Computed example of a mutant assay.
Amino acid sequence: MVHLKGGSRPPWVGLGAAVWLQIASGNAYNFPLYSHSLKSVLGFSQQQLTMLGVANDIGENVGILPGIACNKFSPCIVLLIGAFASFLGYGALWLAVSQTVQSLPYWLLWLALCVATNSDAWLGTDVLVTNMRNFPVSRGTVAGILKGYARLSAAVYTEIFGIFLHNSSAKLLLFLTLGIPTLCIVMTYAVKPCTPLPGKTLLSVAIFFSSKWPVFCSAYIFSLPQY
């Protein structure tokens, strides 16, 4: 049974936090950014690399368990599961690509990639279900906003990879290992079931502001010079 949280914190706070989590949940789109390192550093063949791509897609799209969990556990628990999956999966890939640990077996890396990208499903399902419950009269609008930001994540990660991580696959995997869990832990307070706002006007205003402010941050990232 999911308990609603009443009080002074309105649901749009959770919607604003959900935008950032949706951007983070697109981490499976990063596979082309570091796949060449899996081939060059670890010596995988093209066929082995293709099978890792299959693992990437499987992990991203298996969402039945997160869906069931959303009906049984609080959103913060689901977020923490996604954070743990990201830490465990991308951590194993980082250990291999950075050669911190030598000769990790191929099957272990295949499973690690499945687990890592399955964090997409946990994060995305959690914030989508929670916010659709928090905005019952604007479910379509909320779903459209959040799904749009999930697709924007590929561009955001690409800019971060090129500008801040200097096109380093090892740095990207370390960023995913630590960055996504950190974001999830920070946002656990905000993404919670709340008493819906009274009135459609307030809902529209809340949705407008919580959906527009990340656009300015994204525009700033895209305006940075390329190196």
Rank of each mutant, 00 (worst) to 15 (best):
I58D: 03
F164H: 10
F84K: 12
Q99Y: 06
T130N: 01
P75R: 05
L123G: 02
V19R: 02
K5G: 08
L109Q: 02
A92Y: 08
C194A: 13
G89E: 02
C194E: 10
A83K: 05
S218L: 15
L49V: 13
Y220G: 09
A170W: 05
T182I: 08
L49M: 10
G91D: 07
A18W: 01
L111C: 11
G53H: 05
M1C: 11
L52T: 00
L95H: 11
F222V: 10
E159S: 14
L52W: 02
N30L: 05
R151V: 15
G82R: 08
L109F: 05
T50M: 15
V191Q: 02
P32W: 04
T177D: 06
R151N: 15
A206R: 03
V205S: 09
N167F: 11
K39D: 03
L152Y: 12
V142S: 11
A121E: 03
G144S: 10
C114Y: 06
T50Q: 15
S153R: 06
V101G: 03
V19G: 01
Q46F: 14
F44S: 00
L224K: 14
Y34G: 01
K5E: 15
M132T: 06
P66M: 00
L38P: 01
A24T: 03
Q22D: 09
A150I: 11
Q47V: 13
F208D: 04
I68Q: 00
P75E: 06
I160S: 05
G144M: 11
N167K: 12
V129C: 04
L128G: 01
S119L: 06
S45Y: 04
I160E: 03
L165D: 04
L176I: 02
C194D: 06
A219G: 07
W20Y: 12
I64P: 03
V54T: 11
A28R: 01
V156R: 02
A170Q: 04
S119I: 04
Y29A: 09
Y189N: 09
R151D: 10
L176V: 05
Q47Y: 13
S25M: 03
A150P: 03
A69I: 10
I207Q: 08
L4N: 08
A92S: 14
V97M: 03
K200L: 14
F175N: 01
N61A: 12
A17C: 08
L109M: 13
L88F: 08
R9C: 08
P181Q: 08
L88N: 02
